[in-house]
Design a protein around this nucleic acid. Structure first.
Lengths: 331, 331
DNA sequence: CTTGCCTGCTAATACCTATTAGTCCTTGAC
DNA sequence: GTCAAGGACTAATAGGTATTAGCAGGCAAG
């Protein structure tokens, strides 16, 4: 359990200074500082024989960066109950981090207050990482504002409204993807469309879907906050657009129970992948969120920020899913 | 983008020394060092107004620990192809880390050489964390030996053979769980049992299964390295024990194609959960690896090591799964 | 012999916090 | 008036690395 080997030790062993060891290690022999080849060899030999490796902490302290990217999630990082919705994001994040040679720090220690994690608290550890990726449906605007103000390098996965300035993000084109689905429905003859979900009252991702829906549906569209089949039937709609995949599954099942055929009597479109697990063999029409790609690109954008470039805002397209729950409107 | 606030800044603002700021922050006013309440208040006020938070790097350098646990996996941390076999371990690790207030550092940057990650390489970053959890079917014994020799605090998820000393681990009772399945089969009248897999030639987890199998089956048991149905039929066995769940699924399908009824003509027992994804509606008899619990307890053991206690070796029981592929032996 | 330049290195410092030894001041006891 | 006993701090240091300014010695040109 002997003390760890340091540059100082190597220096003493080879009769040079600690600075020389550092220089040899970093191959900084080009330019203004020179090391004689035989000295270099002696030092390298000592390093080899002791198995010395630089302490990343010291490195970080001196160099001000340490190739660590933080990942902050407002829910559990490894989702148990969320139907693995976040998993693909993490896969993308990991892949890109690996490619650029960064480690990932999961802020699991952030205390959970009122059911969600908080970034800022008395023992804020964000600075441990060079920068960080934020993941979650809803991010506290106050915390975003503060991150921005402090110049903390970060990127949000998912579009965010300005928070005292533009927020760097990699989002999905919910408005475009939603509008495309609405147009498809209209072309199939649907005259009355209903949107089920929080829409403008929800987080950005929900508001975006609603924007796309209302722009494309115009006067043909209406909205219900709760997944209530009776209320839907009252609107006399023929096509239901659900924010939450699981709501779609549940509503379709209810409709079937009442003798309505899906999709002949009532069509369903899901605006994205399931965030809650929804065991079913129903294959809802809708679109796929490019989650892995979003994770990957978020790291890409973060890396660019860390190199001094301005924070980007990217929107990625969603891939349509044909599914089996959208049909020609009933007569 | 101003420089980060340090204790020095707070000290200058309030006209005290950096040491005083540190003392106030750490509430060390008890015992031998005292701070006047009004000074304390001034400092706290400055901290509040600037939003100062301690830099974890400085902390780590000075205090020698930083509440970070490393997670090293020989494969991807977020498994894409592994059928999510590792996911439950990570869930357990995260839960326990959260409980004890630690962050998790995923060593995604470790370079992949010959298809697997290496712990030791020119830029070893293990020291970044207080200790680390090792995850993977096969861990390089040379690396384990070195970790042990260097006194690096670590815990393996999964039993490991000694590597120049006992390795701290949290493993599953594969011998016991396997033996129980064998005894169950024997009680159902099976006379010839065959084990399909690497067994003694594989990693510890496979060798353990084989040990349990051969001890319980005695002369009734034999082993085949490859999942080859013809070879199995040649042995005239009535019950097949597969190391890999996916092999069991494939073999059962082949058997069915040849007109053999499963389990009436041929029984199958899977020795653990699927490591490769195996889409099927077949519910193999066997046992469940307590993966979440193993992850959780690994962190527990690591935490104990970090507090100076000796590294433990724990073996957790596996829960039997009744399934539908084990029946009374054919006459 | 001076000047200047080059080579090969080292001393010093910065980075940020935690801890310990010690200093200065006030107050109370004798 | 002296001494002791706290109280309230601060100075100094450690911890490991990267960087920069600078120094000693040798050599060539003038």
């Amino acid at each position: 359990m002997s003390r760890r080997v340091t540059q100082q030790d190597i220096a003493r062993m080879t009769g040079v200074s600690q600075a020389t060891v550092s220089l040899v290690l970093n191959g900084r022999a080009e330019g203004d500082v020179r090391i004689a080849p035989e000295t270099r060899e002696r030092v390298l030999e000592a390093i080899r024989s002791t198995g010395y490796v630089a302490d990343p902490i010291g490195r970080r302290l001196a160099a001000r960066h340490n190739q660590i990217l933080g990942v902050f999630t407002y829910e559990s990082v490894f989702p148990a109950g969320m139907g693995d919705f976040y998993h693909p994001f993490l896969v993308g994040i990991e892949e890109c981090a690996e490619r650029i040679g960064c480690d990932l720090l999961l802020f699991t220690s952030a205390p959970v207050i009122d059911g969600r994690r908080r970034i800022f608290h008395q023992d804020n550890r964000l600075r441990l990482a060079d920068g960080c990726v934020l993941l979650g449906q809803w991010l506290d605007p106050a915390e975003l504002t503060r991150l921005l103000a402090e110049g903390q390098p970060f990127v949000s996965v998912g579009r965010r409204d300005d928070a005292g300035g533009p927020v760097p993000y990699v989002g999905a084109d919910y408005p475009g993807a939603t509008a495309a689905q609405v147009r498809a429905a209209i072309e199939l003859g649907h005259q009355r469309l209903v949107y089920v979900g929080e829409g403008p009252d929800g987080p950005e991702s929900h508001a975006d879907r609603w924007r796309g829906f209302s722009a494309a549906a115009g006067p043909h569209g209406s909205r219900l906050a709760a997944p209530d089949l009776d209320a839907i039937l009252v609107t006399d709609s023929t096509c239901v657009f659900v924010e939450e995949y699981a709501d779609g599954v549940a509503l379709a099942a209810q409709a079937a129970e009442r003798g309505l055929r899906v999709p002949e009597d009532l069509s369903f479109v899901a605006l994205g992948d399931p965030t809650r697990s929804a065991p079913t063999d129903l294959d809802l029409t809708g679109f796929r969120i490019p989650r892995r790609e979003m994770g990957w690109q978020a790291v890409e954008v973060l890396a660019a920020i860390l190199e001094g470039q301005p924070g980007e805002q990217r929107i990625l397209p969603c891939e349509p899913v044909a599914g089996s729950t959208l049909a020609v409107a009933r007569a």
